[in-house]
Design a protein around this nucleic acid. Sequence first.
DNA 1: ATCCCATGTGTACGAGTGTACATAACCAAG
DNA 2: CTTGGTTATGTACACTCGTACACATGGGAT
Lengths: 183, 183
Amino acid sequence: MARRYDPERRQRIIDAAIRVVGQKGIAGLSHRSVAAEADVPLGSTTYHFTTLDELMVAALRQANEGFAKVIAARGGLEDPHTDLAGELAGWMGEWLAGDRTGVELEYELYLAALRRPALRPVADEWARDLAERLSRRTDPVTARALVALMDGICLQVLLTDAPYDEAYAREVLGRVIPRAAEG
Amino acid sequence: MARRYDPERRQRIIDAAIRVVGQKGIAGLSHRSVAAEADVPLGSTTYHFTTLDELMVAALRQANEGFAKVIAARGGLEDPHTDLAGELAGWMGEWLAGDRTGVELEYELYLAALRRPALRPVADEWARDLAERLSRRTDPVTARALVALMDGICLQVLLTDAPYDEAYAREVLGRVIPRAAEG
DNA sequence: ATCCCATGTGTACGAGTGTACATAACCAAG
DNA sequence: CTTGGTTATGTACACTCGTACACATGGGAT
């Protein structure tokens, strides 16, 4: 049967799942499509992930981790001397510019939690992490509000094909931040 | 073939589609499931809506219209003497309380625009309408920001199972509204 | 009255899906 | 070396789906 020893099989399946969602959306995610993308037999995907929900949970978690690294690497959020609203607005602009496959992938998995309870803990984890990160620059209430507003702005751009207006984003993000707490 | 003359057939199919999405989500939407729900033969749904996208567009549009009526009926948004932030926060609370089938239905169709370009014009229309409605109480920039923030707050509640905190919502919505423009 | 065409209906086909399961290959422990 | 249990593989089944299409029907124009 030409079985190959492949200790990272599980990881490769997750990577393939992320690529599939990026290209065809969640609607195109199936055990078979992932198997084809990962170049493994069907039985392998069903063995490692009995349910598609399991696979999506793993994919969303991994996407979140990768994203968190990008944020951390950018720094800026840590430095209390930078303009927080401007920093966030610029960061969103960077994120929304160019190829949006990654953005759409992130949001599609994130929003899938609306109908798939299995994904909710992961979505919750993500929102909490980002809010906590922002809490280093402001109070928790403001941090939560910033996350919400950023989500809303991104969605309006993504859902309505409207261009991203960085000045506008900076302006309204700034309004949410109390003057006293500004860097 | 026992054909029945049914001039409102098309409308009934749309209603059925909305019920199906509410109960089983977009993933459960198919020509057959809608046909069963509407109690019409399969050929009838494929005749009136060649594509499922067409059906979703009609469903989203109808859901938006129904929602707009609810907003309009509530008044409050028109009266310049009410606290706008409090009004919006209370309205979200009302909306998120109790049975969330309707809320989830709305958002699922709305968010589906992320991957289905056919839905984007309808999503755009909805966002514009709401923003314009809010523009009667503030400037357009603030109105857009309010819509974004409300979307973000609702999503966090729906995606993470977090309870809705009306005081918090009122507080941060209030921050977005410039003092000079407050009612 | 009759003709036409939008509307309505039933059925069939091929493609894709989740799932189950018998079997094979392999690593690790005894 | 042998045994045992995890990992891997191929195949088959039952099901749902979109789509196409031939045919029925009846209202409204002529």
